[in-house]
């Protein structure tokens, strides 16, 4: 197997799992959203790695080039990036309301407050 082989995919998976770990274990909800963003970017890396063609260039047509990378994943990920920021902003807006209602965005503290009432 030639060297880059599946390396890109493996690292993308590892990054995804780091994002997931932050989402699962960090009690601070702002940090959870940071984890979610990391997860998201790893998926982008995975897709764009699949689009690469060896010896290819960016898919902007020109007479001097014949081999181009696949433009379709690029389009899908462009859409995903923009949707990603929209959902992140919505999540943060919800957090602002959670902060207003509970006085904290810490998962454990909110659980404790819920138990009290």
């Amino acid at each position: 197997m030639e060297f880059p082989g599946l390396y890109n995919y493996w690292i993308a998976m590892v990054l995804m799992m780091m994002g997931l770990y932050i989402v699962i274990t960090d009690p601070n909800m702002v940090k959870k959203i940071v984890g979610l963003s990391i997860f998201q970017v790893s998926v982008f890396v995975f897709y764009i790695s699949m689009a690469k063609v060896r010896g290819g260039t960016a898919p902007i047509l020109d007479d001097r080039f014949t081999v181009y990378s696949n433009p379709l994943p690029h389009v899908l990920i462009l859409t995903a990036i923009v949707v990603g920021i929209a959902t992140t902003a919505l999540a943060l807006a919800l957090l602002v309301r959670i902060q207003a209602a509970f006085g904290t965005v810490d998962e454990e503290a909110i659980k404790a407050l819920e138990r009290e009432t």
Binding site: T57, A58, I60, I81
Partner: peptide, 8 residues
């Protein structure tokens, strides 16, 4: 950029 996805 390295992976040829300049727009992304």
């Amino acid at each position: 950029v390295i992976l040829d996805a300049v727009d992304v």
